[in-house]
């Protein structure tokens, strides 16, 4: 039994798929950082190799479909338990049955892939709305959040399109990284809570008081429906939404 370990990058994951694809005895595929050795399997560390990743990517796009490739990427971002192994099963299934197997929504593997896809994209919709910026400098804005799935790579295009004249720092507290946008391009860099505290030391942005007041004034008390509110805006997101506190 082999456990494949990769460095946490998508290229690394595709490289792991490259080597694990023909292996009949795969126990699991894990990120090196969170790996806990077990008694049953033997760990194999796979370094990320760009050419191998490219081969997989190219082959999926040529022989299968862009949709399949997108699913693999979203599975990777979902960070659900066993999502990497599921990706391998999905890849094997698609190559053996053709991309048309994606139609079989009742197939157990496809079902789980679709679930993960829905979870990531559904949360992306939430995040696009629930992100809250505060102003640090003249055109510098900072936001922090802690999504269940890794949303930063998916947010880039949306934020660049929408706030193209603002410098942005979007801090993912859970993964200790941040998206930086400097009016021209975006990168994702490691970023800790200490960095954030340093940045926020001198900020005093009071616009939230206005919005908080608006949030209260627009409510119709006669129609109170906190259950509906909780369904649409789950409590776990509210920590980062100052108007709800």
């Amino acid at each position: 039994m082999n456990s494949y370990l990769y460095d946490g990058s998508f290229d690394g994951l595709l490289t792991a798929y490259f080597y694990a694809y023909k292996d009949t005895d795969v126990h699991g595929i894990y990120r090196q950082s969170g790996y806990q050795p077990d008694l049953l399997s033997q760990p194999l560390t796979v370094p990320a190799q760009n050419d191998k990743a490219q081969r997989i990517m190219h082959s999926v796009q040529q022989n299968l479909s862009a949709y399949t490739m997108q699913n693999l990427y979203l599975l990777y971002l979902s960070e659900l338990p066993d999502c990497d192994l599921l990706g391998l099963q999905y890849l094997r299934l698609c190559f053996s049955q053709g991309a048309g197997i994606n139609h079989a929504k009742h197939h157990p593997v496809i079902r789980r892939v679709e679930d993960a896809r829905y979870k990531v994209l559904h949360e992306l919709d939430h995040v696009k709305g629930f992100l809250r910026f505060q102003q640090l400098g003249r055109h510098v804005f900072y936001a922090c959040f802690a999504p269940d799935h890794n949303q930063l790579p998916l947010l880039i295009s949306h934020l660049e399109r929408r706030f193209s004249d603002q410098k942005l720092i979007v801090h993912d507290e859970k993964r200790n990284c941040a998206l930086l946008y400097n009016l021209h391009s975006s990168i994702i860099v490691p970023f800790t809570a200490d960095n954030a505290a340093e940045l926020l030391e001198h900020s005093n942005d009071n616009t939230i008081d206005l919005f908080r007041r608006y949030f209260q004034a627009i409510n119709i008390p006669e129609r109170a429906n906190p259950r509906q509110q909780a369904r649409y805006m789950p409590h776990r997101y509210r920590k980062y939404m100052p108007e709800t506190q």
């Binding site: 129609r223 429906n225 906190p226 509110q229 649409y232 709800t244």
Partner: peptide
Amino acid sequence: ICHSFTADGRCIS
């Protein structure tokens, strides 16, 4: 995109 939800369950967009 919905940006927030008030206590009556309606969205603030």
